[in-house]
Design a protein around this nucleic acid. Structure first.
Lengths: 211, 211
DNA sequence: AATTGCATGTAACAGGTTACATGATTGC
DNA sequence: GCAATCATGTAACCTGTTACATGCAATT
């Protein structure tokens, strides 16, 4: 259900074609809610069928057309209503922590590879999110600029503040995941160096800098 | 795909019926990978069809039976192979951060309700994970006890260490989410008190204790 | 003329959710 | 006799993924 609200959020700024929307999507809200074009086009059709948006065929060249969508009043209302409904949280389903819980079944090298991959993954996300944070600070994201242009001056600060705050949270999360992976590598080292020297059941963390 | 490996992880400790498995699941690996029983039973059948596990009908009372599953050699191999394959990371899809990014479209009170709900949600998760961490430290989780009983003494320390490490990561995450929500509430306060006093484009965080 | 970008989808499948459905056994 | 819990599923639906499929337009 979130996809349609992500789409409405973009369309509320102004009309866009499916293609434009899909491009804007990947450069803005796609950083928190990924969706491929094969999902976006059908969803737009469904939203149109439900009168949340309206599409207008526009000629393009001689033969081709494109469909430009704009939000209807019902769509605007639906978005605002969604903002007011309590968010539904998905049940935990975390493949990385699932695997981490059973790393004793892997060799130290395999376990290290896992944590290196985890670091790599989250560093890539971090780069995306930090980039976005930077573009927000510089007011240098095309979608954000368009949004501010149609926003009451009194609300511009809030608009920017919530975007920044969102990406700060994501950046923090990425840092936390990377730190966890680093501690994981340290844990493997310490388990290896201890070797068969007997268990240390409830000893302190090897070198994990946790409060 | 993760579900079957979560199930294999439990069954590798020893045979269990679907019902027992489902109970054990919710008390152990279910804390990182939720699955309802309506998903577990069919998955067990599928795994049996693929020879990863074998089920034995056991009589129970006069008429009833129960099906006790144990891991086959192929199942054991499949689990170990999975442990060695690089984890596939799902694309970002975060409803809370999606909504946070557009909170300027909500009233301050609605925005506060969102962050209070977020706090509540993660405090519930935190309680679960801290409880689990405590049970790991006390070696007081039935599944863990059974696991250690069939684990080479030399590997017991690692087994415990990785479980503890996993839940520590989750506890950290919960703390981070709660801290983010608290900063969100502070942000709303500061935006309200500033009122129409003009934007503070790139000013420091209101009172966010971030590095 | 060829490449890149614009533009829009369909189809098959995997995975997960919710609701529904049924009945036996054991302990009180 | 009744409740709890043991025990096992099916069906419909939703969301998302991957692969496939097509063709025009603008630029070089």
């Amino acid at each position: 259900m979130s996809l349609r609200y992500a789409l409405l959020a973009l369309l509320r700024v102004g009309p866009l074609s499916g293609y434009e929307l899909q491009k804007q999507f990947s450069m803005s809200v796609g950083h928190v809610w990924h969706a491929p074009d094969s999902q976006i086009y059908p969803e737009l059709r469904k939203m149109e069928a439900e009168n949340l948006i309206e599409g207008e065929e526009q000629p393009r060249g001689q033969r081709a057309t494109r469909r430009v969508y704009h939000v209807t009043e019902a769509g605007d209302r639906a978005f605002l209503e969604w903002m007011q409904t309590p968010l539904e949280y998905a049940r935990v389903r975390d493949p990385a922590h699932l695997r981490a819980a059973y790393l004793e079944a892997a060799s130290p090298e395999t376990a290290r590879a896992f944590f290196r991959r985890h670091t790599e993954q989250w560093e890539a996300e971090l780069a995306q999110w930090e980039g976005e944070l930077h573009r927000i600070a510089q007011v240098d994201n095309p979608m954000l600029v368009r949004r501010l242009a149609v926003t009451d001056p009194a609300d511009r600060e809030r608009t920017i503040a919530f975007k920044r705050f969102t990406y700060e949270g994501l950046v923090d999360r990425a840092h936390a995941e990377i730190a966890w992976a680093r501690r994981g590598l340290e844990l493997i080292d310490s388990l290896e160096s201890e070797g068969g020297a007997g268990p240390v059941p409830n000893g302190p963390e090897p070198s994990a800098a946790r409060a």
